[in-house]
Computed example of a mutant assay.
Amino acid sequence: MHITLRQLEIFRAVAQFGRVTGAAESLYISQPAASMALSELEKHLGPLFDRNQGAGLKMNDAGRALLPKACELIDRAKELEMQFAGTGSYKSGLLVMNASSTIGNNLLPKMLSKFSKENQGVRVEMDIDNTRVIEQRILDFKIDLAVVEGTCVHPDIAVTTWLADELVIICRPGHPLANKSNIPLTALSDEFWVLREQGSGTRELFDEMIAPQLNSPKVAMILNRSEAVKQAVSDGVGIACISSLAAKSALDSGHMATIGVIGLNLKRHFYLIAHKKKYRSAVFEQLCDFIVGWSPL
């Protein structure tokens, strides 16, 4: 049996894209070359994908078993290349991470800037999306790690509790309830709401803690970024429930106000997540340790 790293790279790309064409494009090789490499790998290991006409390639049980092992071998090979390519150090490499909107827009720029200054050999690529999309990318080994605001309970995902956060209900400064406290939630029954999209941690907490007590909330708009939610509230579209972290600058400047609802507990945590079978290289551990030990204060 002779399996090459290139075959494993092509297998991983096909697993991530679901099609040989997309995998070939991502690796800058021809589609026939990718198909041949995958075929050779399956000659050694047996079928790794279910092939349905017009539906792309979907990993079977053997493919799912191989994926974490293939990713580890590829990552270990890259780690060796970095150490012996002139740096002579394990403290060099590339990590791909994701963050949910609140964290990515308000915490990550400052945090990653500090990390980069202290670890100049490590490059971090970061993208922002909602918790459920990020969770699936972790499961598919498309990214190395992530920080999210929604809870993750999948058995294959390792979760580390990170920072505390709290949601607040915001409105425009001229709203009749602006900056008032001890307001019963029922007083907001006739208000129009600007909500985050399904799959975001903020929306999940709203649906769990607020929506059931309003019977059927009046939804004016659904947006996928906290900045867009704040702008809609500022424009008078409705009220919203977002992270106090995301609302802080607007509240401090007086461009936004809060509505203090009595008896409503909207506290939560942010989480660091990674696949349990993900190979933890030296630079991976560096970034994880930095995130866990970092404080915005």
Rank of each mutant, 00 (worst) to 15 (best):
N98E: 05
L45W: 15
A33F: 07
I3M: 07
H2N: 12
N106I: 03
A15W: 02
L245C: 05
P68S: 06
P176L: 12
V233D: 14
H2K: 10
Q213N: 12
A99P: 01
R268H: 04
L145F: 05
L80C: 06
R132I: 03
V229C: 10
H175R: 02
M59Q: 09
A178V: 14
R19S: 11
C152V: 15
G150I: 05
V261W: 04
P176V: 04
I239W: 08
Y90V: 14
S35Y: 08
E149A: 09
G63A: 03
F84R: 03
I169A: 08
L67A: 12
Q231P: 02
V194Q: 07
R172V: 06
P32G: 09
D75H: 08
L251V: 01
R76F: 06
C288F: 03
A70C: 06
L266T: 13
G150L: 02
K267C: 09
A62E: 08
S249Y: 09
V229A: 11
E197F: 04
L163K: 14
W294M: 12
N60Q: 07
N215K: 15
D207Y: 01
S113L: 13
I3S: 10
I29P: 01
S281D: 06
I138W: 01
I10T: 12
S181M: 09
I128C: 05
Q83N: 06
L5G: 12
Q213C: 07
Q136I: 01
